[in-house]
Design a protein around this nucleic acid. Structure first.
Lengths: 111, 111
DNA sequence: GGCCCTCTTTACAGGTTCTTCACACCCCAT
DNA sequence: ATGGGGTGTGAAGAACCTGTAAAGAGGGCC
């Protein structure tokens, strides 16, 4: 069985993710995400604080084997970063770890 | 057990739904709906404010497993929208969430 | 039968999202 | 400082999703 998500509410800073209800709120306001964006954000938030490889993210979200040349994860990380930046400009959530993958952690940006 | 509907009156804007009595009123005037239309509208109104998948709506109203190719929910959403538009042109009730499903929420239309 | 009404299914158009590619830039080891 | 793989990202076409008209199927009634 996969990761338990029943009735789950994931919180991270001012973000509230309800995967079951297809809803993400940023400081109370609903965030407009596509299916893939929501899936990827959920996968990241479920692994909050850990560095996660593209392979792990890809197999979790896309449900098929990862090819090293596939850039889908990067593209969607970019889309998520942009939407999160629009909604919560004072925070950053998705951090790159060169050569390893991404880490989801809400951080206050440097002033 | 299913959703409790005993003696329930669902209200949403100028809409009043009495599932037990097979009656819907729009600003006091009875709305002429078929059985399926009433069932679907009731299912939506019982989940007011939430994004609901076609699958959930289909299994609730049709009482059988959902096939991805089945468009019945979409067709009936269209019929409901048309009748609600005729009765209450200033409001919109059923909102599409691309890739996820529908959300029932009474909203004043943009002027 | 013929008519009417409802429900189901299909087809197509139009719109949105997803995938892939290309290129620029970045990071690190040498 | 330089080289080479890693990462960010815009753009374009493919793939997928939704709205809706229309046709077919079934039942009830006269």
């Amino acid at each position: 069985m996969g990761v338990a998500t029943n009735g789950t509410i994931l919180r991270a800073g001012a973000l509230e993710i309800r995967p079951e209800e297809f809803v993400v709120r940023a400081a109370g306001r609903p965030l407009r995400l596509t299916v893939r964006e929501l899936q990827l954000l959920t996968a990241l938030a479920q692994r909050s604080g850990r560095i996660v490889s593209r392979e792990e993210l890809y197999t979790e979200v896309w449900g098929e084997p990862f090819r090293k040349s596939d850039r889908s994860v990067d593209v969607y990380v970019g889309k998520l970063r942009h939407k999160l930046e629009d909604a919560l400009p004072a925070s950053s959530f998705i951090h790159t770890h060169f050569g390893f993958g991404y880490r989801f952690t809400p951080e206050r940006k440097a002033p």
